[in-house]
Design a protein around this nucleic acid. Sequence first.
DNA 1: TAAATTATTGTCCAAATTACAATAATTAGA
DNA 2: TCTAATTATTGTAATTTGGACAATAATTTA
Lengths: 231, 231
Amino acid sequence: MYRIDFNDFFTSAFSVDCILFGYSEGEIKALLIKRAMQPFENLWAIPGDLIYPDEDLEQAAERVLFELTGLNNIAMHQSQTFGKPNRHPQGRVITISYFALLRIEDFEVKASSWAGDVQWVSLKNMPDLAFDHNHILSSTYEMLKLKLQNEPICFDILPERFTLNEFQQLFEFAFDQAFDKANFRKKIKNIPLIAHDEKQQNVKHRPAKLFSFDMMAYAEGIEQNRYTFKM
Amino acid sequence: MYRIDFNDFFTSAFSVDCILFGYSEGEIKALLIKRAMQPFENLWAIPGDLIYPDEDLEQAAERVLFELTGLNNIAMHQSQTFGKPNRHPQGRVITISYFALLRIEDFEVKASSWAGDVQWVSLKNMPDLAFDHNHILSSTYEMLKLKLQNEPICFDILPERFTLNEFQQLFEFAFDQAFDKANFRKKIKNIPLIAHDEKQQNVKHRPAKLFSFDMMAYAEGIEQNRYTFKM
DNA sequence: TAAATTATTGTCCAAATTACAATAATTAGA
DNA sequence: TCTAATTATTGTAATTTGGACAATAATTTA
C-alpha cells in the first residue's frame, strides 16, 4: 500500500473546481468564467485551479473564491471528486469540487488572470461547458441540496442575525420552490435559534424579529447524539 | 486555470482508500489490514492503493476490493476526499475514500502483497489507525448512512431477490438499531418493488415472499421528478 | 394434528404535515 | 390621529405519517 514511485505518477495533478451558487431575479445561478486559454478556449467553465503542493484542499478552494470575488471567510463545502483518466486533454487531472452559496449583491466579481470573462449563469439555461463541467455542476447542485437538508450549512450564508423569512427564502432559492410560511416555521422548530429583541430595520411594513443560530446548543445536541439536523 | 506545470506538482499522488463494511455477530465491522511496511508498519489501516495513471477512480477502488476479497461486480461508492498536505509522511498524497457494504460470509479475505494481516474490526472497538484513517473511517460511516437514506444503494448488497426482512436487517445493521417490522413495511411502501410468487427456501418456518427492486419504475420516477428516494 | 416459529396485516393513538384562516405590528398617507 | 396597506406571526382543522403492539396466516417439525 502506498508504494510511492514518483516516476509512475508524476503526470498527475489535482485541482479544485469551485461552484459558486447565487440567487437573483428569481433564479439560481452559478458563477462561470470564460476560458482565456486552451483547451476549451472561449468556452464557459467552472472556476478552478490546481492545488499547490503545500495547500490544503479547502484552502485551495477558498483561494479560488477569493481571487474571483475578493470574498474571505466563506466556508467552501466539499462535494465530489472527478477523475476519469481522459477528462483533461493535457494530462491526468483529478478535480475535487467545492461549492458555496453566495449573496450575489454582496460583492463585485473580478475577472481573474485565467478568465476572460465572468458571469452568473442560470442553472436553467446552462450552455455546454468545458471539460466535464456540466456533469460536475449538476452533481454538485444535488450535493448542495443534500447538505442543506442534513447539515446546518445554511447559516454560513445567512447574516449573523436573520429573519425567519430570510431563512425560508434561502431554502426556497436552493430547492427552487415556494414553502408555506407557517409550515416552514413549524418545520424548523427543533433547530436551536436565539430570538433577539432586535427587529428588522428600514422596511416599509411590520418589521420581523431577528434570530441567530444557537451554535452552542446545536453542537451540544449533536455531541450527545440526541439530535440530528434534518430539514 | 489549469496552468499545468508538472515540475511544480510532480510530488503529488492520488490514492483510494476502501472502507469495506460488513456485519457479523451483531456488530458493524470494517475490513482492516495490518501494514507490512513503513510508514506506520504494523499498525492497522484502511486498505488502499495509489491510483494508476490510466485508471478511473472507481476502477481503482474496485481493484483494491478485488485484491483483498476476490469479489467482483460490487459497486463502490465515493465518500470524501482527504488531502491535508502532511497527512502522508512520504509526500503529498490525496486520497479519495470509497465504501461498500459486504456480506462477510460471502467470501474469504486474502492478505494482499501490501498487507501482513487482514481482519474485520468492530466499529465500536476501533484501535488507533495509521495516517488519518480513524477520521476517514468515521466520516465514511456517516456518508454510508446518508447515502443509504437518500439513494437506493441498499440494492447493491441485497441479493437480486430478497425478503422484506433481509431488506430491513440491512438498515438495522447500518444504523445499528432495531426497527419495528410492521412500521418498516409502511415506510418502504413507496419504493418500487416487484413481488414474486417465489418464496424463501429451506427455512424452518413460514417462508417469506421474495421481492426485487423495480429499477425501471424507480428510474422513471426519478426521471420525471415525481419521486425522491427517502428512507 | 398441534405446537412452534416467523411472515404479514391491522388497529389505535400520537405526532407531523398541509392548507388555509385569523390576528398583530408596523408604515404611509389622508 | 386614523385608516389602509403590508407583512409578520400564530392558530386551527383535516390529513398523513409514525410508533407500539396485537391479530392472523402460512409453514415446518414432531
